[in-house]
Design a binder for these strands. Structure first.
Lengths: 235, 235
DNA sequence: GCGATGATTCAACGTCTGTTGAATTGGAGC
DNA sequence: GCTCCAATTCAACAGACGTTGAATCATCGC
């Protein structure tokens, strides 16, 4: 007697589209957009591949939904930070940029590799979506650099767009590559690689863009400390 | 009468394995290692996919052969440059590093994306090959930084491995991403993006690592000038 | 209780992939 | 001119892929 393998119909606890996105994010993080298969995503989510097509139009639509879930918070934080009335020195504000990126992207290699991959080998449909998401968060950083130049804290000959590109891209490269490069290629431990690398990077970067590099950096808050605890070190 | 589509047997001009590598390089450059298919490579080379298996053991072996063709010259140039008796100031020697990388990798996005991709999602077999190729060329750069510190030209607290990582990775990111980011995301022209970006980057980097950042950079030779014409500007 | 609707699975499609074994042929050596 | 080998192609394999249409079941409104 052939047992019907699995009962069809809705499960006891229904599948939220967000759960599918969680699974997709995990698989994308492991394999990248192209290599990630819908079957692998379905297995990760514990459902049939066809269910994905009930909630999303296609694999690309799933990627777009992932972007739509991840980017607006980053954009909101960055735009708040780049408000011109912020009285903090430029160094601190740029460090806040780093912290915002870090909090939002450090645990999501999938999104990172997706973004980079689509910029390099951009499929047509996704290019517009990407531009719409990335442009505002680059412009927010750029406006901080613009203001730093106007205030005389940064070199007058600094190219603000290039400065933005350098800061952000190196941050993401540190997340993506530094642990592996240090451990696999150099035999060093990888546990503190990201924090050490990011601090060294920001120090180098600041010297590179500051009008007077001999002025040392002010004390910077911890990378992953809570956003509401910028002043208190102990409760 | 069914025409035998193509005559079998050897062609009038035989296929050099190097020609296959050329084709593979081109396709890898377009599509990346995973997405590049042997059928696409064969079409690019004008032969049958099976011929690839006559000259190479597998797709991975083809990739390894590509590395073996591209890296030894870079390694040789860098090791000659890092000889401790070189009397030039550290800034000039580091700029030579940039030029060596540039000459050898600027026209080969395939190799670049392959290396990076394999570091991020490293397949087991290729990881060792990569390490064997990359480690020496990173150590050569590191030894220049080490010497710069010892001579007092660079900051004493500079971490040489991180400094190497920053210099090289940002160079490759400028090649891979800057033109696209500037044009597609910002609407700027992309033709001089790489040269402008690289010079701005080296300027920033040098300020970041120099012991005395207020000393300006010496005049630097052109990026792509011939390697034998470092002194003579006119014959 | 019943029918509609929404959520889920099954099975299959056509296409592409890396890879292999057998068939074929041009040219070199004798 | 014959033989042999090296180089090339053909045809096919088994598996994975994205995607779709139909079938199934659970639950809700009535």
């Amino acid at each position: 007697m052939p047992t019907h393998p699995r009962p069809r119909g809705p499960k006891p606890n229904r599948m939220d589209p967000d759960q599918l996105l969680d699974a997709a994010q995990e698989v994308f993080a492991r394999d990248g957009l192209r290599a990630a298969s819908l079957r692998a995503i379905a297995k990760q989510a514990g459902c049939d591949p066809a269910l994905i097509y009930y909630h999303f139009d296609s694999k690309e639509a799933m990627f777009a939904a992932l972007l739509a879930r991840r980017f607006p918070p980053i954009q909101k934080e960055l735009e708040a930070l780049s408000a011109p009335e912020d009285p903090r020195p430029t160094a601190l504000r740029l460090w806040e940029v780093v912290r915002i990126y870090h909090r939002n992207l450090k645990d999501d290699p999938g999104i990172r590799s997706l973004i980079r991959g689509e910029i390099v080998h951009g499929a047509e449909g996704l290019a517009d979506i990407l531009q719409e998401r990335i442009r505002p968060i680059m412009m927010a950083v750029k406006s901080i650099l613009d203001r730093g130049i106007a205030l005389g804290e940064l070199r007058a000959d600094l190219h603000p767009l290039l400065g933005t590109f350098f800061l952000v891209r190196m941050h993401l490269e540190i997340l993506d590559l530094l642990p592996t490069v240090l451990s696999r290629l150099m035999g060093l431990p990888r546990d503190r690689a990201v924090e050490t690398g990011l601090q060294a990077w920001f120090d180098l970067y600041w010297r590179g863009i500051a009008k007077d590099p001999s002025i040392p950096l002010p004390p910077l808050p911890e990378l992953s400390a809570d956003v509401n605890a910028t002043k208190e070190t102990h409760p």
